[in-house]
Nucleic acid binder design. Structure first.
Lengths: 188, 188
DNA sequence: GTCTATATGGGGATAGAC
DNA sequence: GTCTATCCCCATATAGAC
């Protein structure tokens, strides 16, 4: 029982450490050495569990995407009226100055040049866009308008993160959300 | 006359090459060696004109910001009615899959950890936000609402870039813009 | 499965000749 | 001002013992 437990622990600690470092610095800017230091695991263990950095990145970014989707759908699939669910999602508290743990990877060449990693990003945004489009359709909008509005809603979040980091002001994200929700609200 | 011309040419070619590479790959992911190769200039020249990578980055990102601001204000300061100027700015053609040449740096630790470089980014977005806030105020909105709406408008662009890259679909940006402009239009 | 030792290549920069 | 040669360090592994 001891060996399997330690085995799992080492792998999990590597993935946990990698998730945090990749979210904070990006994949390209994070070395396997840094992950080793943060996890407290030895070099041999890393390359046993993850033969290449790519493998570690797919595991870590994949786990972050799974976490984020689970949390998003807890809000998007709640029993509230459609528009309220979108607004609740937009207004969820976020660590604006840290940037989006997933969206930031779109600026990371190490991620975008890696087919497997890029697919993980794509899947995340496609899933969210589909869910938001469905919700906007429930408010009575035609398909194409619902789809555009879903894109706008997600763009507000991702762009809000960019503005917050660029201006070093966390309220830039909440301001963008307020500006968009203000338009949505009066609108219906 | 020959020497000064060549001097200027070498420096300019370095900055031009650096602007393109930084826009395409980020500052952290671009080596001085890569800039040398792209510019066709020799190693000694680079370190003569720019003692450190930081100096080159400030010059190159600064030039990109200056270019972008000049182009933005050509649209934002045109003689058209206020709302039309905002919409024209939002709908300007953009290379969505390439990402924003400036906004993408918010995800680059090499930029964000460098005070001088970060200030260049901050200045760009602060200037645009101020201009957009002023324009929305001209449409008759109260100050705080105008400010929020300005944040939303810029977030749409920046977030649209992120969505386009994540989904590998340039129309994700135009969809976000359509979704936002649709709300703006009906609203006033 | 985990460890220590080692290897190759590139990043960022310096030295000194021309 | 520009060139070539050189330097040190770290990123990303690989090798083989325990």
């Amino acid at each position: 029982m001891v060996t399997p437990m330690n085995t799992a622990a080492a792998r999990d600690r590597l993935v946990d450490a990698a998730q945090d470092l990749f979210a904070a610095q990006g994949v390209g800017a994070t070395s396997p050495r840094a992950v080793l230091a943060a996890s407290g695991v030895g070099q041999g263990s890393l390359y046993h569990h993850f033969p290449t950095k790519h493998d570690l990145a797919v595991a870590a970014v994949g786990a972050t995407v799974d976490d984020a989707l689970a949390r998003a759908f807890r809000t998007l699939d709640s029993g509230s009226p459609a528009l309220e669910r979108v607004i609740a999602y937009l207004e969820r508290p976020r660590d604006a100055l840290a940037g989006c743990r997933i969206g930031r990877h779109t600026a990371d060449q190490a991620v975008m040049d890696d087919d497997g990693l890029r697919d993980v990003l794509t899947a995340y945004f496609v899933r969210l866009l589909a869910a938001l489009t469905t919700i906007f359709r429930e408010t009575g909008l035609p398909d194409d308008v619902a789809r555009d509005r879903a894109h706008a809603a997600l763009a507000i979040i991702q762009g809000g993160y960019v503005l917050a980091r660029a201006t070093q002001d966390p309220d830039a994200l909440t301001a963008a959300v307020r500006g968009f929700v203000g338009l949505l609200d009066r609108h219906q």
